[in-house]
Design a protein around this nucleic acid. Structure first.
Lengths: 347, 347
DNA sequence: TTGGCAACCTGTAACGTTTCAGTATACTGA
DNA sequence: TCAGTATACTGAAACGTTACAGGTTGCCAA
């Protein structure tokens, strides 16, 4: 009387999650046939195919990820590799949302792989590749000569970078055109009559540092303005540091009359520093800043902003990796986002 | 001469990723023994155990996640379920970082499962449970009577909620003490001589809406101040809406002389609205606001802030789920974070 | 009639892991 | 001496999937 339900004969019970075996039992077909029917293999009769797919839909069959992964090596996972130590990167959530928007209609899951400042940025990437934990990887904080990109290219794992590299190697990327941004910012400030400009740069070493610096420099000479060196500051420093150094700078006789800032958080600090020095934004000095959400104009109306859409970046990056996984030419999966024009406050 | 490398005999080649079979071959033991030795099973001799573990470390053995998952059902995945439609939730990245901090030393991966406003919030949770995609789940935007919590409790899947429920059911949570926050804010404003206060509430329907409203109301009657109703506004409305409604409110004769705001982004809008109405913060009206990063004092020095640490929330939530997965009593995995005191600007 | 072939379908093995049900050996106590 | 038992190990099976190497029809051309 001890009738235990063994795994063998409860296929039709409907309580357990259905597998191919369940479907095979219900349709009277073999497991192989069912598997093929579900993926529209050509050697399956049209009617059988329909029947299987109907039943599968009815009982809510979903392939077991572990089974597929074990058998095929396909993980259906995209990994977003993030540095967790740069505090004010609120845009991270935008990128994540952008990515999830794109993969929502796919079988892919998004895993977030963190690394901290103390680690080699290559570590998490190496981990992902060695353990085969993802079909595709998205990295940010890209460098001109990026060991992670090189590594993944060698290992043949699809990836996309947020920001370009400069190694003569081709791979998918999405980037914001920071050269144009910095140039437009300079031209705008020059148009307002400013001619002593300071640049708040991206982190030294990242590719877009170079783009920004070049755009700034080229436009400066184009409009005949001069640069007030401000090399001690970059956007991944702390608010306090940026603020203090800005105040120092602004108390000097040869202070700038315009700033170009690569990030909204840094801009808050810059403005605080300007005001610490007893100067007034919009009168003594103007600031053009990138921002990723519409907050800067609430902060100070005098600010001049250029919008960067990180949700878009996330979507483009996801599309790029998926494209590469799907076999597209990596060279065709590169995109560059054009800055909006410089926007003053409009009440 | 067509010596193909078959899977059978390349175990010692060192090129492929090592498996238990590789270890078994190298140590001369059986696969079972190796498996047990690696997890410190008692029936393995001490010396064998050491030997196996040494070799495993040497060749960098890592268990194949798909194999484990298929065999045991254990995914080693925690899922963070997020609403992607609430734009200004920059704190999301803090929560993510908090979670990753805790799971960094574990075999767990973090997957981000999104849902949009149009969907039933139960959908993503149902998906996770039905497909067995995670060992544990973290949800936010918790409601007093939360169908997701009820569902997961029924299905017996470990989870933690950001925010409490009120269903008489016990489960792990982390929450910020918004009752105390609102109360302290009111007392502080009263101490400054304000007695006509408005509350910018959390989204109606979420548990902490109630906490906040109650803390506000109780403290109001305690200090003998009165409420200026501002029910048309809550913090997940758009900046523009909040700003406009605040301006409307502030142009009325019976305008408030103090605000308590539940989120930094909303506070920016409130201040903009106040200024739109031609009034001055710190003279005509004061605002106490929660914030998750140190930005509000840069925005306006007159603001009064209370800090809420979302990175801590993420860590606590991760600890809670892992604890439950590990068999701890869910009732012991609840934590409440106490607000800092109300902080004025200190130059 | 027969051989060939196309169309459809099937069983078996394998991916890497853990669990079950053992086996072999050495030691214990009577 | 011998049963009993503790210790240390092992092979086979199973999780759900896909790839490989067939198998069975039925039809057509020779």
């Amino acid at each position: 009387m001890d009738r235990r339900v063994t795994k063998k004969d409860d296929d039709a019970s409907g309580k357990e999650r259905p597998t191919l075996k369940t479907l095979a039992f219900m349709t009277g077909l073999g497991v192989t046939t069912v598997s093929r029917a579900l993926k529209d293999a050509p050697e399956i009769g049209a009617e059988t195919r329909r029947r299987v797919q109907l039943v599968a839909k009815q009982i809510g069959y979903r392939p077991n990820r572990a089974g597929v992964r074990l058998r095929t090596g396909k993980t259906n996972v995209i990994s977003l590799v993030l540095n967790t130590e740069h505090e004010l990167m609120s845009f991270v959530s935008d990128i994540i949302y952008g990515v999830t928007e794109v993969i929502a209609d796919t079988p892919y899951h998004l895993i977030v792989t963190p690394y901290s400042r103390s680690q080699d940025p290559l570590d998490p990437v190496r981990y992902l590749v060695e353990t085969g934990s993802a079909d595709g990887v998205i990295i940010s904080r890209t460098q001109p000569n990026d060991p992670r990109a090189r590594y993944m290219l060698e290992r043949g794992i699809p990836f996309a970078t947020h920001g370009r590299t400069d190694m003569g190697l081709v791979h998918p990327y999405h980037d914001f055109d920071n050269y144009t941004f910095a140039g437009e910012a300079v031209r705008y400030l020059a148009g307002m009559g400013h001619n002593r400009l300071a640049l708040v740069t991206p982190p030294v070493g990242l590719t877009y540092y170079g783009h920004t610096v070049n755009g700034f420099a080229d436009a400066l000479s184009e409009v005949g303005a001069s640069e007030v060196p401000f090399n001690t500051v970059s956007i991944d420093q702390s608010i306090e540091q940026i603020r203090m150094r800005t105040a120092q700078l602004m108390r000097r006789k040869d202070r700038p009359d315009g700033f170009v800032s690569s990030a909204a958080a840094a801009t808050l600090a810059i403005v605080a520093g300007i005001e610490d020095a007893g100067l007034k934004l919009g009168r003594d000095v103007d600031v053009v800043s990138k921002q990723s959400s519409e907050l800067l104009h609430l902060f100070r109306r005098e600010l001049l902003v250029v919008n960067e859409n990180f949700r878009l970046a996330g979507s483009e990056l996801a599309r790029a990796v998926l494209g590469w996984i799907g076999g597209a030419d990596p060279g065709s999966l590169q995109s560059l986002s054009t800055p909006s024009e410089v926007l003053p406050y409009r009440g």
